[in-house]
């Protein structure tokens, strides 16, 4: 078993809130993702087992959404909004700047294992563009200076 007992418990508890247990797939995927940082076939199997659902139901659903990657990412997953409001204020440059600064390709993990930079569609932070999401948090109204400082902070926290 990959999932911890507490995750398992949380999943089965969550399922009780829904009239139909299949609805608990998304919450279960969130719980698993939060615990592991990525998903795998094994985790799909476990979720299916906990919820007494078919593997295919879990696997299909998970594959549809962007928030349940199957690949390992850096400790800090940086998602730069590439959409219009952010783009008008330099998000493309932001992405390029980050890649350059971290010396990494889009989607790859930095050598120190800390960072992965990807592009995202609009994250609902358009009036505070440009922005990026790092793990669960939004960092908004970004400037070069702010980005530099954030990266420093992440590095020092390790």
């Amino acid at each position: 078993m990959i999932l911890s007992d507490s995750a398992k418990l949380q999943i089965s508890q969550t399922a009780k809130r829904y009239p139909k247990v299949r609805s608990a797939i998304l919450p279960a995927l969130h719980i698993a993702y939060e615990e592991h940082g990525y998903l795998s076939d094994q985790i799909y199997e476990e979720i299916a087992q906990i919820l007494d659902l078919k593997l295919i139901e879990v696997a299909e659903a998970a594959s549809f959404y962007t928030m349940f990657p199957k690949a390992k990412r850096g400790k800090y997953l940086i998602q730069v909004c590439r959409n219009i409001s952010c783009a008008l204020l330099g998000s493309h440059h932001l992405t390029a700047y980050l890649l350059d600064k971290l010396n990494v390709e889009l989607g790859e993990i930095t050598a120190d294992g800390l960072f992965t930079v990807v592009e995202a569609e609009c994250l609902g932070s358009c009036t505070t563009a440009p922005m990026m999401q790092v793990n669960a948090h939004y960092y908004e109204n970004l400037t070069v200076e702010k980005v530099d400082r954030l990266i420093e902070e992440f590095r020092s926290q390790k």
């Binding site: 008008l88 330099g90 998000s91 493309h92 200076e145």
Partner: peptide
């Protein structure tokens, strides 16, 4: 050519 840059400050 839209070359929107990240502001410095």
């Amino acid at each position: 050519h839209s070359q929107f840059k990240l502001r410095t400050k």
